[in-house]
Design a protein around this nucleic acid. Structure first.
Lengths: 112, 112
DNA sequence: TCAATACTTTCACATATGACTAAGTATGAG
DNA sequence: CTCATACTTAGTCATATGTGAAAGTATTGA
């Protein structure tokens, strides 16, 4: 089973909007209906739904329709993969700094 | 000294473009001039510069002009803070799942 | 059966974005 | 001093985005 590889364009873009990040925050506390999600926001329902759909396309949210109610949940696989990208680059930078510092230390010791 | 708190709108948006993520990848290997950065890409120099400037506004890149050459470096503070946001939400979700699983286990034990 | 509820779809609008070209500015090398 | 190099700025264009209102559809409860 391969590690989930998201479309990083989509996941980072989905996270670039404060309303969508707030939606994710709400869903981390547990599944919620579309109406639940809409309550804290002062935007029209079709606008909120558009955000939810963009989060679904990014793989961050899943939703299921039962009767007239659509319930949404967070799906952390995409968030994890996004996090892996960030971690890899932070680590690469830090590793390079550590190597440079060790090299400088060795040069100082050779100088004495 | 307070922990660096970036504008998450900007940092996630900066990361939502493949060209900008590639620029970050290049800079994680070490500082580079604008011309260095432009080489691997098939876009006009003003377009590449626009990307670099957006990364600077997001706090992910810093640059310094010396003579006619501008040298860019990565600055991982913004990447770290972005990562903290992701980690916090992944953790919140996982903590909630663990609690639910423990609760279900207890109910099963009480049933027997 | 009907009214209420919970979405869903469509269209419109203002703004932002990512690309381009062209021209300009500053610096360095010969 | 002149030419080459390395950016920088300005304007344009096509596309995308986030909001809204209006109307529609499906389901549920009385």
């Amino acid at each position: 089973m391969t590690k989930y590889e998201p479309d990083l364009d989509r996941t980072f873009f989905a996270l670039a909007d404060p309303t969508r990040r707030a939606i994710i925050g709400l869903l981390c506390a547990g599944p919620k209906t579309v109406s639940d999600l809409a309550e804290p926001f002062d935007i029209a329902l079709p606008s909120l739904l558009k955000h939810v759909q963009l989060l679904e396309k990014a793989g961050i949210v899943t939703s299921e329709k039962r009767g007239r109610v659509r319930t949404c949940s967070v799906d952390t696989d995409a968030l994890r993969a996004t996090d892996r990208w960030l971690q890899a680059h932070i680590t690469e930078w830090e590793t390079r700094l550590e190597r440079m510092e060790a090299h400088i230390q060795r040069m100082k010791e050779n100088e004495q």
